[in-house]
Amino acid sequence: MEYSPREMMAIAAGRFIKDGDILFAGTGVAMLAATVAKRIHAPRAHIFFETGGIGPTLEELPMAVADPRVMAFSNLNAGLVEAFSYVANRRLHTIAFLGAAQVDKYGNMNSTVIGDYHAPKVRFSGSGGACDAGSLASGYIVFMQHGVQKFVEKLDYLTTPGWLTGGDSRKRAGYRRGGPIAVVTNLCVLKFDDTTHEMYLAERYEGVTPEQVQANTGFALDVSRSSVAEPPNAEELRILRDDVDPQRLILD
């Protein structure tokens, strides 16, 4: 069955979600993945947004985290301070879905600038709630298009804290939990070593070689542990295409 890299990304990310997890969704593919996770993999997961929308039914796909569709038929509607009290809540297992412009081998991310911060070549949106989710949530999953411009040795600006400089540096910086769990790209799924917290290739999509992944990564990557990812099945694709994004607002 034919499927696009973006469809594979949404479904691959959804597989990390356990029933009962509390999901913090950002914009774009992240939103798609959270919705897919709830419809397919974890029906008892709860989705919420940093804007304060808690547990909406998401009958139509939101175009932004402040879309009125995140307020419709929800458990409750609140504001930012309340939403971050769920992100940071010690009783909850909160998983965030985030995107960025650059990521490094420890899963730190840049969504602020390319070039010098004071005279940037390219300005991006900035943190929004990404740094907060990276700081406070139980973990996060990253979405990226794979390329050497995006997978870099050194970030131009560190917006969202991942495993910082690896090892136990995140804990030493003052964080009590969290950190990146996986990076999901158009080629593969990358995870982090339990001890060094360096990124490694975990699963490559059908037809993708480890060499291809390394060639698109701007730092040396351990590709020795990889296997081929299970492709999406017909039912997963049907739900994604017919129920989640029928207007192909994000899939295209």
């Binding site: 914009t27 774009g28 175009m63 900035g126 943190s127 929004g128 709630g129």
Partner: peptide, 24 residues
Amino acid sequence: DIAYGGNGRFAPTCIRFRKAVERG
């Protein structure tokens, strides 16, 4: 003072904001 200069799927980075920052 800002956290995020974007407009969801309509502008991943707000367009005039981006130009103004890049032009100093």
